[in-house]
């Protein structure tokens, strides 16, 4: 009865947030290549030269 509206709402929310998160992480990776690790205060020492986002 109301299932299409409910599923649409939940799918849109999680879908949009997932896409926005992915776009942000990819943009961050792209920009990080141009900035020294010393200027990225959040970088752990073992992360330099590898590692993933999350």
């Amino acid at each position: 009865m109301n299932t299409p509206y409910i599923l649409a709402s939940w799918s849109i929310v999680f879908g949009v947030l997932a896409l926005y998160g992915l776009a942000t992480v990819l943009r961050g990776r792209q920009l990080a290549r141009r900035v020294p690790a010393s200027e990225r205060r959040w970088v752990d020492s073992q992360d330099v030269g590898g590692g993933g986002d999350g």
């Binding site: 992480v25 990776r29 990080a32 690790a37 970088v43 752990d44 030269g49 590898g50 993933g52």
Partner: peptide, 11 residues
């Protein structure tokens, strides 16, 4: 020169 780096991720 700057390492591939983990982008904006951290622990």
């Amino acid at each position: 020169e700057h390492g591939g780096g983990p982008g904006t991720g951290s622990r």
